[in-house]
Simulated scan of single mutants.
Amino acid sequence: MNKYEVVIMFYPNIEEEKRVQAFERLKKIIEDNGTVNKVDEWGMRKLAYEIDYFKEAFYYLVEFEAEPDTVNEFSRVSKILDPVMRHMVVRLDK
């Protein structure tokens, strides 16, 4: 298994309940075939530039270990979830 880090940005106008549900769904994808090592809830942060007319986003940082297929599934689901503005998965060096 490889070590990864993902930053997930959620739209600021999404209700907390829907945001938490979407985050838990993404976290479950990782936990089904890997392990979540650390979750940091950064909260609302200002964006460097506007995305879809929004100037802020709600951030999560997750460190995890998983197989590449799990990362592909995570990215696929992240792209189709409405509350997710952007995400970026980075493989950490050994």
Rank of each mutant, 00 (worst) to 15 (best):
L92V: 15
N13H: 14
K28V: 09
D69K: 05
N2A: 13
E50K: 12
M85A: 06
V71E: 04
N72G: 05
K3G: 09
V36Y: 03
D69E: 13
G43P: 04
V90H: 07
E65W: 10
V77L: 10
Y60M: 02
E17C: 11
S75V: 13
F58N: 00
L47V: 07
H87M: 06
R19Y: 05
M88Q: 14
E31S: 14
E5K: 06
E65H: 08
P83N: 11
V84I: 15
R86V: 02
K18L: 14
V89P: 05
M85V: 03
K38M: 08
V84G: 05
E56L: 02
E73N: 10
K46T: 13
A57M: 00
P68M: 12
A66P: 07
R19V: 08
E16C: 07
N37C: 04
Y49A: 10
E65A: 15
M1N: 12
F64T: 00
E67N: 11
E16D: 13
F54Q: 13
V20H: 10
G43I: 03
K18I: 08
P83G: 11
K28L: 15
N72F: 07
A22R: 04
K3S: 14
Y49M: 12
D32M: 14
N37F: 04
K3R: 12
I29Y: 12
V39Y: 02
G34P: 02
A22L: 04
E41C: 01
D52P: 03
V89D: 09
F23S: 12
E16P: 06
